[in-house]
């Protein structure tokens, strides 16, 4: 794994840009621990001040410093994305590996359910959740809901990898040497599936952060936890764009776009590293 990252850093531009963007975003998130203001307090600084030496990214109409507000917001947003991604990984790995490995009716049943979750439009379902839960909707609860809905696409991918692994020779060898199914999955297959899981984790983070931002912007979220979506929500409530407080909207948007592009580029370059076919086409050839 270390070697892969080193290689990618050295030779892959997309990976380098991705890592650079994510480092910036993570630094920003890390700074939140040194924030001089409690994240939920309002009117701690003069409102509506444009970016200046005192307030680097300006202040909001609610008297918050955009820079510090943004740092806690991106921290919460990243944590949210990571939580959803990790929780949904559990489901997609279990479903994907067992479906791909066991095959037969287990595979058929699991994939029928899996395809259902791919097809169902999740956004209206999430809105329905909010509609029923209203004020009881919290960031953690939303993360739980989203991870139980957003695993299907990746488990299909993991299944296809498991299916190809299953037919490889070492699987047969492991079976004959008396390993249990679980042991084979864990010891022999997981190392092959891991890089793919890693890249799907990044893509899943993008997906969940995107939905979180959208839900929060519409106000369908716990708007008191500062997140990127929450910041934009409050800016919209104060019609910041019309009032010319552009910095209130622009900086959160830029930060979240940097996050999306960064995560995506890292995922893409890892996929390319895994896939020998695209490696070949990189060299300019493609014939075996």
């Amino acid at each position: 794994m270390k070697r892969i990252i080193f290689d990618l850093l050295k030779y892959n531009n997309e990976f380098r840009i991705g890592v650079f963007l994510i480092l910036i975003v993570m630094t920003m998130a890390g700074l939140s621990f040194f924030s001089p203001y409690p994240p939920n307090d309002v009117f701690v600084v003069p409102p509506d001040a444009p970016p200046s030496a005192d307030y680097w990214l300006g202040t909001t109409s609610r008297g918050q410093d955009v820079f510090w507000q943004l740092s806690i917001a991106i921290r919460n947003t990243l944590a949210f994305g990571l939580l959803v991604a990790l929780l949904s990984r559990v489901i997609s790995i279990v479903v994907g590996l067992s479906s791909g490995y066991l095959g037969g009716w287990v595979d058929r049943v699991l994939m029928a359910i899996n395809d259902t979750f791919i097809v169902i439009p999740l956004f209206p379902i999430l809105i329905l959740f909010y509609f029923v839960l209203r004020d009881s909707m919290s960031t953690i609860l939303l993360a739980l809901i989203m991870s139980s809905l957003g695993w299907a696409y990746d488990s299909r991918l993991i299944r296809s990898v498991a299916m190809s692994l299953k037919t490889r020779e070492f699987t047969g060898t492991s079976v004959f040497s008396g390993m249990t199914i679980f042991e084979i999955l864990r010891r022999e297959h997981l190392p092959y599936v891991l890089p793919i899981i890693f890249s799907t984790t990044l893509n899943n983070m993008n997906w969940s952060i995107g939905l979180e931002v959208t839900l929060a912007v519409l106000g369908f979220m716990d708007i008191n936890t500062p997140t990127i979506g929450g910041m934009i929500y409050w800016a919209n409530q104060h019609t910041a764009i019309v009032a010319g407080i552009w910095w209130w909207v622009t900086f959160p948007v830029l930060t979240v776009v940097a996050t999306f592009v960064g995560l995506y580029l890292i995922a893409v370059s890892i996929n390319e590293y895994i896939d020998p076919r695209s490696r070949l086409s990189r060299m300019g050839g493609g014939q075996s």
Binding site: E14, N206, I209, G210, L211, V213, T214, V217, I232, I241, V242, V249, V253, V256, V257, F260, V261, L263, Y264, L265, V268
Partner: peptide, 22 residues
């Protein structure tokens, strides 16, 4: 496409709105 593809609908729509509305 690489830069635009991962950005969620909301952000793109909002940006277009700012550009063509204001």
């Amino acid at each position: 496409a690489m830069a635009l593809h991962p950005v969620p609908y909301y952000i793109v729509a909002l940006s277009l709105m700012i550009v063509f509305g204001f």
